[in-house]
Amino acid sequence: MIIAEGLTKSFGDKEVINVTFRVERGSITGFIGPNGAGKTTTIKIIAGLLRKTRGKVEVMGMDPWNNPRIYERMSVIFTTIYHPQEVRVIEYLKDMGKIYGKDPRDLIEEYKLWPHLNKKLSQLSSGLAQRVQLVAALIKEPELIVADEPTANLDPQARLEFYETVKRLHAKGVTFFISSHILSELEKVVTHVIFINQGKITFEGRLNEALNEDEEVIYLLVDNPEKAIKVLGKGEMEGGYIKVRGKVREVVDKLDDAGVTIINLRRSSLDEVFKKFSSV
């Protein structure tokens, strides 16, 4: 769906990104990296808003720069709505509907926007604005949705709603390329991940490949932490949890044999992978 090969963007003499990756059709790909890693630059090149300096970028087989045809099949979502803020919700959605020859009423109904139709975009709360942006993005029935930090301004409830929608649309065959910082929620929906750090791709693959390592960080809540550390011969306390690096099966077996009861076990998450691939 998206192919980037040696995709480079420089501002002046400074090379901001130099990336190679691929986004599979039908995937939900998380694009993860620390601030300033080059996520937004990459997404803007994919969205046709920035021009690449070198390399190859293809979105649905086409170069996105100054190519209006890709907008027929691709929608771009940002943290906030990039549309004149004096426009009312109904005008915005009707206009989008008219451009693509679609009636937005079903989507307005589905996303419960009826009470807010006469509000100006500037008057919307972050969650509502994101819902409106999503509806505007869905009007054209896109094959690909590229989202840059779509949940950054949202409260937990709105974030969950957003990712529920992502899952629902994914089931209908929509491909997602989402950059986000809120990894605990992202890992529940993504099928693939791409890590970027300092303008370079540090990992690209399926989510299980990213998480599945021989030795991973495990957080254990046990009834006798001192004994558990003694038995394992390693580990340190982090809050009430023991943080230990190793294979889950071996750790659990050792503690079982020693009669230490495991109350809770948390395996490594995208947060740990993020730290690893971001050199944090």
Partner: peptide, 22 residues
């Protein structure tokens, strides 16, 4: 104050990402 403001604040993105040429 309309076009300049749209470019400054990004509102023009909404028009640029419509399926018609620049």
């Amino acid at each position: 104050y309309v076009t300049g403001d749209h470019i400054y604040k990004g509102g023009i993105i909404s028009f640029i990402t419509t399926p018609i040429s620049r």
